[in-house]
Nucleic acid binder design. Structure first.
Length: 197
DNA sequence: ATATCGATTATCT
DNA sequence: GATAATCGATATG
């Protein structure tokens, strides 16, 4: 798997896992965006290799975490072989385990009970956005950039629990102005945890 | 429901 | 010096 568009589709339905055992945080990937190399002006790799985007030019399966708007982190998965650029932005997760921890990190600790299953309207505020999910999973550039997401031994990895994605919707990417017409956003049809339908 | 706006700083030109 | 793959709040219909 190399082309970010193929990797994006393959990632839908997989599970992002932080930590191990009973306290592990888990969330199903329900929305992603592909960022290509040459020809995709919206991609961070568009203007060549820099210290910030170096992971995108490295081997696939690694975390590219960037900081933006002075306060937010976003998580991407590198796709290509060494030397080529391409990645997939993880935009939204459906919380599966560790909702209490996620709520606390998101500043929603006082708004929910000690129950593990949150009411729907609060659950949607845990990880239905690229910066929200990083906050919920405590993902930062200092701690996670370059991490191997394919290893179960890694503190942050992506697993497969057998879930099969049904219908995948293709749309234009959110929050960009350059190359905005490209249909590189993908999400699970009908899933309530997508950042926006 | 949709629109606009401010926060806040690493990174790049 | 300008920008930014966002979010949450506020205003308006």
């Amino acid at each position: 798997m190399r082309d970010p568009r193929a990797v994006a589709r393959a990632l839908l339905g997989k599970v992002l896992v932080r930590g191990r055992g009973k306290r592990a945080l888990m969330g199903r990937i329900v929305e992603v965006e592909a960022y290509l190399g040459a020809g995709d002006a919206a991609a961070h790799a568009a203007s060549g290799l820099t210290r910030r985007n170096a992971v995108i030019f490295g081997p696939g399966g690694h975390a590219y975490v960037y900081f933006t708007y002075g306060m937010h982190y976003c998580l991407n998965v590198s796709c290509m072989e060494e030397g080529e650029a391409g990645c997939v932005l993880i935009r939204a997760l459906e919380p599966l385990a560790g909702q209490g921890t996620m709520a606390r990190r998101r500043g929603l600790g006082l708004e929910c009970s000690s129950r593990n299953t949150l009411p729907g309207r609060l659950a949607r505020r845990l990880a239905s956005g690229p910066a929200m999910l990083c906050e919920a999973f405590a993902i930062t550039r200092a701690r996670d950039n370059g991490r191997d997401l394919t290893s179960k031994e890694s503190g942050l990895w992506i697993g497969d629990d057998g879930y099969a994605a049904r219908r995948i919707v293709t749309a234009r990417r959110i929050g960009i102005s350059k190359s905005a017409e490209l249909p590189l956003r993908y999400f699970l049809s009908g899933n309530g945890f997508v950042s926006r339908s």
